[in-house]
Design a binder for these strands. Sequence first.
RNA 1: GGCCUGUUGGUGAAGCGGUUAACACAUAACCCUCUCAAGGUUACAUUCAUGGGUUCAAAUCCCAUACAGGUCACCA
Length: 547
Amino acid sequence: MTNKEFADILLPNIDKTIEDYDKIYPKRNLEDGAIVTRYAPSPTGYVHMGALFSAFISSKMAKQTNGVFFLRIEDTDKKREVENGVSGIIRDLKNYGIKIDEGMISESEWIGEYGPYIQSKRKEIYQTFAKHLLINDLAYPCFCNEEDLENIRKEQESIKDRIGYYGKWAKDRYLSKEEVIKKIENGEKYVIRLKSPGKFENKIIYDDLVKGKLELPENDLDIIIIKGDGLPTYHFAHLVDDYLMRTTHIIRGDEWLSSVPIHLQLFQVFGFKPPKYAHIAPLLKEENGNRRKLSKRKDPEAAISYYHEKGIPTEAVLLYLCTVANSNFEMWYLQNKDKSIDDFKLEFKKISSSGSLFDVEKLLNISKNYISLLKADEVYNKTLEYAKNYDNELYELLTKYKDYSINVMNIEREQKKPRKDLAMFSDYKKENWYMYDELFINLEYNFDKINDLGEIKKIISFYISKYYDANDDKETWFNKIKLLSEELGYAKEVKEYKEHPDNYKGHVGDVSMVLRVCLTTKTMTPDLYEIMKLLGKERIEKRFEMI
RNA sequence: GGCCUGUUGGUGAAGCGGUUAACACAUAACCCUCUCAAGGUUACAUUCAUGGGUUCAAAUCCCAUACAGGUCACCA
């Protein structure tokens, strides 16, 4: 019996060849240096921070070289599937402004010429490639079940041999064609394994784009390429898909590093040129002195929805991720405030080979700077978007008082060093609620140095009757507060008071603090003059009367 | 256990045989200031996991040790 006849019995419905697919998916016509990358998640319904990190790097690399970035769904494990999982991933990428050139655009549709971009629809392709191996005596069916494998492992452990299905331990490798056919006729289940040509004693040298030059043992494991359900394992799907989709660079987590010998061998066995690999270290989290991978299950900040719920701009997250990827980005961005990430050139070589702690503090700082550079109407739109999803009360106020809100957001914004008090859009209400009469209820005033009610009343009544004028400019306004202070026995300059504290009851600062607290209840607010201007005469008088 | 990777301050890091070991976040103090947010100034690693070696000279090169992480699935 020839290998071909044998392969036909195992995979009877496969009549295409790999050459046929080569024609369907020709080499890409791209300029020199163009990088083709992908993001290839399982359809679990969400993207977590670590995945976003690698998706960001992948898309950025493709974009800056005029290459291609595509989204491929790896759904060969039915147990992990989640309903509408693909849509969740597409939504998350879109929210973060990571655009795909090719790949899935909904649960079942895709764009691009190298599809299908979902593995469950590529079964025949994988089997065609497996059949090629069978015909060339580089693969064989294996009938071992879980129990058989367990027994082999136990025996290997007892004699302290290396664990795995390889060499003499790979007993089904030595089955004759006749034995195989008999087993199949008996209805025994099987998988297809690679007949590995490698030797563990041999070393392979390969150059990782981020880890550098590495020496690894050659693969001698007869890994499974087609599972019992006819679908490929990750390794085999990687070979087939990334070959046919003409991926040039595989950017993935470094948990894959030790699989590189398998992948390289797969490419070698087919005579294909392997892609370049960039293995990036995971984002870490510190937990009682130890570091572990940031986990979606244990760490709320690992979920992308966490940032959405707090109103942390996606741009800030990307900015943070970019500084983690290439630490020189931070300095560059500081010197090029008017530019964007798109203008920065990310380099593989500058990606750290060891994992870094995910620092939410730093992210918030970046976010704060980012928001401070926005125009008031941009802040308004983004805050509105946030409120629409998470804060109905705020949403209604923002809608009702649109122009007024934009003015509030504009306080101390149009200046050389804009105010930096918002790290997330959910901070807006926390910082500025008192600007809305609807929220100016159930008040608790936090008076500071001057907290005698009689004195407070005296200050505001003098102020409103003798000094306040809604038309004053800032300088006049402040001069009047100084005059008021003087009249009531307070120093009109803080310095003056510090020099002769016994001559005064206090200073201008204390007096304006009274006004501030009466109008806002808070001791810490943005510029009082701006606040008063926006409040207007009527509301100021009303708030004073409330005291 | 085998194989592989990593280790510079609280954090992210620059550094590539001769530097006062950049810079940013965080922290603290002071200054500025009507309060905050900022901004400014300063402080924060005599030392680069540890121990050896090479060298006139080592965070940088070599070796060993320790610690941490990854991987060894019909999961990706």
